[in-house]
Design a protein around this nucleic acid. Structure first.
Length: 465
DNA sequence: GCATGATCATGC
DNA sequence: GCATGATCATGC
């Protein structure tokens, strides 16, 4: 399979594929594909403009040629794309219109396979599901896409599916493929599927059997739908938007302009004044300045929808008069055992530091002789997007990470100091000193995380103008 | 006064 | 109960 170079997502990364898929929610293929009307799908000698929803989606939205490979659709990410119709019941409830067909059953191959090595598990363990609302007399490009997201089967369901798969395999081994019926199994069914040539001969001594495909029964699809709807509802509850509507986005000129605009009214103001304008009372929590920053963005104590989608990390920094950040910046605590198993390319720190940051910088300006870091003296100074230069990541952070990994394996609990001047350092990040993590040698140490060095941050902020 | 270790309030 | 996004505390 070949991928377009100019993809607007990373086909090797499940999260990126999912993010691309989620942009479809609330839209139709016609909305997202400018030339949808004239699209012609299929191979060159078999082109048609009556492509089904799934083929149009694959070929023109995800930009790869549909295939019959035994690999998942996104082989490096291990993600299999499936789109499936919903229908609306009289009282408005959305339910799956049909079972979800997965891969074809190959009667000759399955007898040689085990569940673990099967073409089924190779292909279908991580699904990207796109649910669209089917409507009568409507062309595929006009179906409204209701839901999109990754789906992983719960472990106990996989166990049942394994048993179902084995039951189907048993029948084939006994030469009874022609007797297979959907009632044989529980979650994973063997659905009759296509094949105009009629029953196929798969074994000398057995009667020919109809072609079948592994499928999820429609009530199982209903369960998936409910789970994904719940996840979507939770997400909506926990996130707030920067824009109320398309018009709002167009008028304000996109995320970057909206962010500048929101902060511009507050630049140069001190904390008490910002809080007065916003009607906020600063909390006692250590993340109080983060909350004020979110207040300026118009989204209090909620995740920001557009930042989540664009993978932007928002960080608030307080500078002292000499431009030195008062504190370093922390990342999530890691599990040492996971860190030492990582390669650089899939390391958590590379993933984090590879992202785009929005730095919101406040600075103290204290009257001469006053040593108090009082909110009165803290002013909003700079707001800017930043991402770490490639050379810093590859020439410094990479070696820092290698040292950390090596030292943890040798049993050192605090492998990298900020005085090592390697951009990042390791420090405790825990509830308290009893909140522990396990070292490779079995001893315990306080949970740790990576932190961005203050000196490095000072340079980054000074370099921005 | 900085570097390092320890910990907090909050939201889910 | 844990992660988040930070700040607080202390020893050198």
């Amino acid at each position: 399979m070949s991928f377009d170079n100019s993809l607007s997502y990373d086909p090797n990364d499940p999260k990126s594929i999912e993010a691309h898929a989620r942009k479809l929610i609330g839209k139709t293929l016609r909305n997202v594909l400018p030339h949808a009307k004239t699209l012609r799908v299929g191979s060159s000698n078999n082109r048609t403009n009556k492509g089904s929803f799934g083929t149009i989606l694959e070929e023109f939205y995800f930009n790869y040629k549909p295939n019959n490979s035994r690999e998942p659709d996104f082989p490096r990410a291990g993600v299999e794309l499936k789109s499936t119709p919903l229908k609306k019941l009289a009282h408005g409830e959305l339910v799956p219109k049909e079972r979800l067909v997965l891969n074809m059953i190959n009667y000759r191959d399955i007898v040689e396979e085990t569940w673990e090595t099967s073409s089924f598990t190779k292909k279908n363990l991580l699904l990207l599901l796109i649910f669209y609302l089917w409507q009568e007399n409507t062309s595929d490009i006009d179906y409204l896409i209701k839901l999109a997201g990754l789906w992983k089967f719960p472990e106990k369901d996989l166990e049942q599916m394994k048993q179902d798969w084995e039951a189907i395999r048993e029948k084939v081994i006994k030469g009874k493929a022609h007797e297979i019926s959907e009632g044989d199994t529980f979650y994973l069914g063997a659905a009759r599927k296509g094949h105009k040539e009629g029953p196929i001969k798969y074994c000398e001594d057995a009667p020919p059997a109809k072609q079948r495909a592994f499928s999820l029964k429609s009530n199982y699809v209903r369960f998936i739908l409910a789970q994904m709807q719940a996840r979507q509802a939770k997400w909506e509850k926990e996130t707030g938007p920067l824009f109320d509507s398309v018009d709002d986005l167009i008028e304000s000129g996109g995320i970057e302009n909206r962010v500048r605009e929101r902060f511009s009214h507050f630049l140069g103001k001190n904390i008490p004044e910002i809080c007065r304008i916003l009607g906020l009372t600063p909390s006692q929590g250590k993340s109080r300045y983060d909350m004020i920053t979110r207040g300026i963005l118009g989204i209090t104590s909620k995740r920001i929808e557009e930042f989540e989608k664009a993978d932007i990390i928002l960080r608030t920094i307080r500078l002292k008069e000499n431009n030195m950040p008062k504190e370093a910046i922390s990342f999530s605590s890691f599990r040492i055992k996971e860190l030492v198993e990582e390669d650089w390319d899939n390391s958590a720190i590379l993933e984090n530091l590879g992202k785009k940051f929005l730095f919101v910088v406040y600075q103290y300006q204290r009257p001469v002789g006053d040593k108090e870091f009082n909110n009165e003296y803290l002013f909003l100074r700079k707001v800017f997007f930043w991402n770490m230069p490639y050379e810093d990541l590859e020439n410094v952070v990479r070696f820092a990470w290698e040292k950390v990994k090596k030292d943890f394996l040798l049993g050192h609990g605090s492998p990298l100091k900020s005085s090592d001047e390697m951009i990042i350092h390791i420090r405790p990040h825990a509830k308290n000193s009893q909140d522990l993590d396990v070292m490779p040698n079995g001893t315990f140490t306080t949970k740790k995380s990576f932190w961005l060095n203050q000196k490095y941050l000072k340079q980054v902020i000074e370099n921005y103008n």
